[in-house]
């Protein structure tokens, strides 16, 4: 098994998220993985509440999850373990998260160029038609000399 095969195996497992300390800190779980698309679950936690009067999760916590799931979608799309960094991230909040409920987030990497990956995603509870927040992100590959190879063009 080559290093890249190992990488492919690893990113299909929870280990991929466990390697990211902040995602371990908020308890993010991998739910589904497909080429270029990832779904994660954020368990409800009082630590992540923005308004203690209502118990609603902080927008920032949703942002962190969306940032991560968008990055994960890039990993799910490229063949090699190229390093990349978030270039920009836009989050639109449609509704507050329901107190006490887990939040799911889905993202798909829909285009990869030599240097840039384009991703869209959203957060929801149980109905994808009722999103909590929408995300659009771009990432730049920073691996020196190792450019991304899209799994499909």
């Amino acid at each position: 098994m080559t290093e890249d095969d190992k990488f492919q195996r690893m990113i299909r497992s929870q280990k991929f998220l466990d390697r990211i300390p902040h995602m371990g800190a908020i308890g993010l779980q991998l739910v589904d993985f497909a080429p270029g698309a990832v779904t994660v679950r954020l368990p409800y936690s009082l630590d992540l509440v923005g308004n203690p009067d209502t118990g609603v999760l902080a927008g920032g916590a949703i942002s962190a999850v969306l940032d991560n799931v968008c990055g994960s979608a890039v990993v799910a799309r490229v063949e090699k373990s190229d390093a990349f960094a978030t270039l920009d991230l836009r989050i639109d909040y449609m509704r507050p998260a329901e107190p006490g409920l887990d939040v799911f987030a889905y993202a798909e990497c829909y285009k990869v160029t030599r240097l840039i990956a384009f991703v869209r995603g959203f957060a929801y509870h149980d109905d994808k038609a009722k999103p909590i927040a929408n995300a659009t992100a771009t990432f730049m590959f920073t691996g020196q000399g190792k450019l991304a190879q899209a799994t499909e063009s």
């Binding site: 390697r19 990211i20 300390p21 902040h22 371990g24 800190a25 902080a58 920032g60 999850v65």
Partner: peptide, 23 residues
Amino acid sequence: DKLIGNTTLPALHGGTIAALLEL
């Protein structure tokens, strides 16, 4: 340590920076 997103560099998780800016 729990704010880290990339242990190799190491670098803060972009999401924590987003949250900081929003707050």
